[in-house]
Every structure is written in C-alpha cells, then in structure tokens.
Design a binder for these strands. Structure first.
Length: 269
DNA sequence: AACGGAACCTGAAAGC
DNA sequence: TGCTTTCAGGTTCCGT
C-alpha cells in the first residue's frame, strides 16, 4: 500500500528499528524481489548509518558506503518481530540488529531490494523528479509543462514528481477542484498553485493517518477508507454532496466531483 | 518521442 | 454457500 506517505512511515520505522545498528544476521535469498546473490553476506557486520526516502524508494546507507535500496511495489512492507519469530508468510528478506528483527514481506513480489556500490543507485531512483516533501513544489509548474498528458496521468510519472501514486493524485486533484482530464501543460498558474496546496494537504493528511499506529504496525484487514473521494464512486462529495464520478485513465481509477470543479480562469500560458 | 495497454503476482471483494 | 470475475495504492516492457 505504498505511496509517499506510507513509504515515509516505513522509513521512520526502519530508522527506529535499525538505524545506527550493526546487522548481526541477515536472510535475503535471491528472488524476483531480491536482486543479486550473496546480499546477506554483504550486509552482515555492516552498520546501517542512515535510512532515507526519496519518492517511493527507501535507501539504507551502510558504513562501507554501499546502500540497500528498497522499493515496496504494491504490497511490500517492513515489519518488526522478535528474533525468535519464525519466517512469516511472504517474508522475502530479514535483517536482524541487536534489538530488532526486521522482515520484508511482499505477497505480490512487485517490490525490489538491491545493493548498490557507493554513488550508484537504481536507474529509476536516479531519474526521480523532485520529491514534494524533500524539495518542495516550486518546480511543479515547470514539470507539468513538459507533457500534454492528462494532469492525473502526469502526476503519476515519477520522473516529473516523485512519490505521488494513484490515491494521492486523485485526492490532490479533488482538493484542488481540478478536472483530472485537463492537460498538464494547459494549467494556469493559479491552478498549479491550487494543485501544489492540494498535494501537500493530502500528503500531510495521509501521513497523519498512517503514522498514528506505526509502533504496532498491525495488519488492518477491512480497515475503513480514510480518503475523501478515492474508492467512493457514487458516494456524496464531502464538499457539495453531489455523487462522485469514477473514471479510468491509463488503466487507473480516478474519482472526482464533476459538480465542484473550479471553472478555468482563462489565464492560459 | 510519447502514449495506451498488457504483463508481472497474489489475495480480497464483488458478482452470480 | 461456493465458484467466478474483477480489482488492487507499483513499475516495466511492448507495440503503435
């Protein structure tokens, strides 16, 4: 379930569990997720000196300059267990520090774990656009001007803006009263500004929701939907009560309120 | 160069 | 109830 806010929560957790610690035991058998052989051997006795996030990527920096990059895909998550806890379902990797045994779980195997030499990184990581929380959104207008794709589709392009996924894009557009079908390069300055505010608002909101139970990190089966419009086709718009519309763009669902889109002001670039 | 769509996996939810 | 279909918050590859 990882977009920027969830990955940030994962970062804080992994940092708390393993930051500054020496890896005393590791299991990372090669798989679709774990790229390369011998990762466990390379990690044991190394100290994890920092845990960073950029977009949807985590970077665990080691004391030898190398770094373990982690992408959670659709279903990846890091959890902490007792060292005596046996292998969990869908456990793909394990890193044990002195006080924590940290497991990477990933049923669908869309995630990725890979070790890189100092100064190197996955290509997708190197190509990330600005991260809204790390870099701010000052460059949003310039990024969006690069493409004529619909704004909703453009927001999912990690090279334009890092960390935004289907839910955050959907929620931000609703907050900004923008039509998801509007072309990215046709946004007015006022619209870009509204979008930037919408993005920061939904990121902050989601972060606050997700962060509330980071200690237990409990599985929530059937937890209720905390989002304003995502997954709420036909339900009343929280602002104007009109029924929300679902639309598919580039194979991804978008939800919006056709009734409270803000009319364009004609100030086209 | 840029775009839509399928593919990669598994499980939960909806549909019948 | 139980079987079948649809859908899922990710990226990547492939054909147009």
């Amino acid at each position: 379930m990882p977009e920027l806010p969830e990955v940030e929560v994962a970062r804080r957790s992994v940092e708390a569990w393993l930051g500054g610690q020496v890896v005393i035991h590791a299991e990372l058998p090669a798989s679709r997720v774990v790229r390369g052989n011998g990762l466990a051997g390379a990690l044991v006795d190394r100290r994890i000196v920092e845990v960073q996030r950029r977009g949807k990527w985590l970077r665990l920096g080691l004391d030898d300059g190398r770094a373990l990059f982690s992408h959670l895909g659709m279903t990846g998550k890091w959890v902490r267990r007792e060292r005596s806890t046996p292998k969990l379902p869908y456990e793909r990797a394990r890193l044990d520090g002195k006080s924590a045994s940290v497991r990477y779980l990933d049923p669908r195997l869309f995630g990725r774990l890979e070790l890189f030499a100092e100064g190197e990184a996955p290509r997708a990581f190197d190509e990330l656009g600005p991260d809204p929380l790390l870099d701010g959104l000052g460059g949003l207008g310039a990024a969006l001007a690069k493409t004529s794709r619909p704004i909703k589709v453009a927001l999912l392009d990690q090279t334009l803006l890092a960390g935004i996924g289907n839910i955050q894009a959907t929620e931000a557009l609703w907050r900004a009263r923008l039509d998801p079908r509007q072309r990215a390069n046709r946004m007015t300055k006022a619209e870009v500004k509204r979008l930037a505010r919408g993005l920061l608002a939904t990121l902050a909101y989601t972060l606050s929701v997700e962060d509330s139970d980071e200690i237990s990190y409990v599985e929530e089966a059937g937890a209720d939907n905390p989002f304003r419009v995502y997954g709420r086709e036909g339900e009343p718009c929280p602002r104007c009560k009109a029924a929300l519309t679902r639309l598919v763009q580039a194979g991804r669902s978008t939800f919006y309120c056709a009734a409270c889109l803000k009319p364009s002001d004609g100030d086209r670039p």
